[in-house]
């Protein structure tokens, strides 16, 4: 399992691995928003938590179609499916690798981008906490979507169509927590619900992902 994690991380970091693409995309989305809604700090600070959450979500989505498609094309998935490692575990590891290379950098970059959007002072802590709690769910749910579309040619767009509705609860609770934090209100209810979703998806989604991947490899 550690070998698989190490391999995925190595691949992401080497040339052509796409590490940093999500981060760059996140930055660009954040920079474009003021061009769209105007530079007034008052407007920006109201929408900042939501924009940062949506930016992080889209950046996560962007890298999903590489999550399994490359391993499918070069036969790695066939071989993993016949390996002693259960497919559920392999997919959990791949989701973890995706989070470490995409989700975690987004969490760390979010406060910096918060400055660009005049995020109010108390919001920084809760933005980071909500993203840290929520992005693992995005990776795990995304792995399910990637497994669903693995054998499909040009599955990238379909993947977005399938995964985005599944992201709704995570986005709602995550952005709500960040928004309440920024307004100086108590975000704990949203955070607890968000943590609940994340824990439940981490526990259950790998089974669904492995089931659909086995069907897709057949």
């Amino acid at each position: 399992m550690i070998a698989l994690l190490r391999r995925d991380l190595t691949l992401a970091l080497r040339a052509g691995g796409g590490f940093g693409l999500g981060l760059a995309f996140f930055l660009i989305v954040t920079v474009l928003v003021p061009f769209g809604v105007g530079p007034q700090a008052a407007t920006l600070s109201v929408i900042a938590p939501g924009i940062l959450w949506i930016g992080a979500l889209l950046a996560c989505l962007l890298s999903l179609d590489r999550l399994l498609a490359l391993d499918y094309e070069d036969g790695t998935l066939d071989l993993l499916a016949t390996a002693p490692l259960p497919l559920e575990a392999a997919l959990s590891i791949k989701a973890l690798a995706h989070w470490l290379t995409t989700g975690l950098p987004l969490v760390l970059a979010a406060p910096v981008l918060g400055i660009l959007l005049s995020l109010p002072g108390p919001g920084y802590l809760w933005l980071v906490v909500s993203l840290a709690l929520g992005t693992p769910a995005l990776s795990v749910i995304g792995t399910f979507g990637a497994a669903l579309t693995v054998g499909i040619k040009r599955g990238g767009l379909l993947l977005s169509l399938l995964v985005l509705p599944l992201y709704v609860p995570t986005l709602i609770f995550g952005a709500e927590a960040a928004r309440r934090g920024a307004l100086g209100q108590d975000p704990s209810t949203s955070l607890l619900l968000l943590a609940g979703i994340t824990l439940a998806t981490i526990a259950l989604m790998p089974f669904a992902s492995a089931a659909v991947l086995r069907m897709g490899l057949r």
Binding site: L148, P165, V168, P169, I197, M205
Partner: peptide, 17 residues
């Protein structure tokens, strides 16, 4: 499988909304 998973998330979304 998508229908099963989607049902769970649809209910979840309903309450989230």
């Amino acid at each position: 499988i998508l229908c099963l998973v989607g049902s769970v998330f649809a209910v979840l979304s309903r309450y989230a909304v």
